[in-house]
């Protein structure tokens, strides 16, 4: 018993020391784990980590490539469609002017034809329109109500001239957008329109204007028989 006690004392101390060492180690390890690094990781595990990182890196790089390719494609196509839309809009505006479905304004002339009943006939009006077109008129309207387009016809009527469905009475004022000087010359040249009207006892006055606004629209029905053929 005495010997047991003598041996027991250092052993108890040793047990205390061991517990202290355990506590110390736990604290040390605890602090170690709070450091976020890889110093405690085995080589093989590091290798695995590296490999998986490499793999995900490659995967992500591939994804980046695909996505940026898609983005470029989309950007291109949207730019293309924007351009196409812009071009189509421009073309539609030009065609609207040609077809007479849109008002137009610009430099031009106003030609007034007046005189006795038979001085200005449908034929004279048609000739004057042709003359103006020859001189580069882009938009033509008569008396501010009849827009002259491809389908417009000229027909003598009792009280005047029927132009594209609407009856016009003298005096006739032909407004045309184009180069004012050229068109004025085309009306006035010797033996031309002005001379012909004046031979019949009418008068022709030509006025060049910086700005002619034509708001009359042509009333064009949908084509009933003709279809675009390609």
């Amino acid at each position: 018993m005495r010997e047991r006690r003598r041996v027991g004392r250092p052993l108890q101390l040793l047990a205390g020391v061991l517990v202290a060492a355990l506590a110390f180690a736990i604290v040390a390890q605890w602090r170690q784990d709070e450091r976020e690094d890889f110093s405690g990781v085995r080589g093989a595990e590091l290798g695995e980590l590296l490999k998986s990182l490499d793999a995900s890196n490659q995967r992500l790089a591939r994804q980046i490539e695909e996505l940026s390719a898609t983005r470029d494609e989309l950007r291109d196509s949207s730019a293309n469609s924007e351009q196409a839309e812009e071009a189509a809009r421009k073309r539609a505006a030009e065609l609207a002017i040609l077809a007479g479905t849109s008002p137009a304004a610009g430099p031009g002339i106003a030609v007034e034809l007046s005189g006795p009943e038979d001085a200005v006939t449908a034929a004279i009006l048609l000739d004057s329109v042709e003359e103006l077109r020859d001189a580069g008129a882009e938009v033509i309207a008569i008396n501010g109500t009849a827009r002259v387009v491809a389908q417009t016809y000229f027909l003598d009527d009792r009280d005047g001239v029927r132009v594209g469905g609407s009856l016009l009475e003298p005096p006739y004022v032909i407004e045309a957008i184009g180069d004012p000087h050229t068109m004025a010359e085309a009306v006035r040249f010797r033996g031309g329109l002005a001379d012909r009207v004046e031979d019949r006892g009418g008068t022709v006055t030509v006025e060049q204007r910086d700005r002619v606004a034509i708001t009359a629209l042509a009333d064009i029905p949908e084509p009933q028989y003709a279809r675009p053929a390609s």
Partner: peptide, 22 residues
Amino acid sequence: IPIIGLVVGIVAGFILQPTVPA
């Protein structure tokens, strides 16, 4: 004695701030 050891160990761990050798 073990309880004293436990306390001593924890205190020593916090004071010395040991790092585990690699």
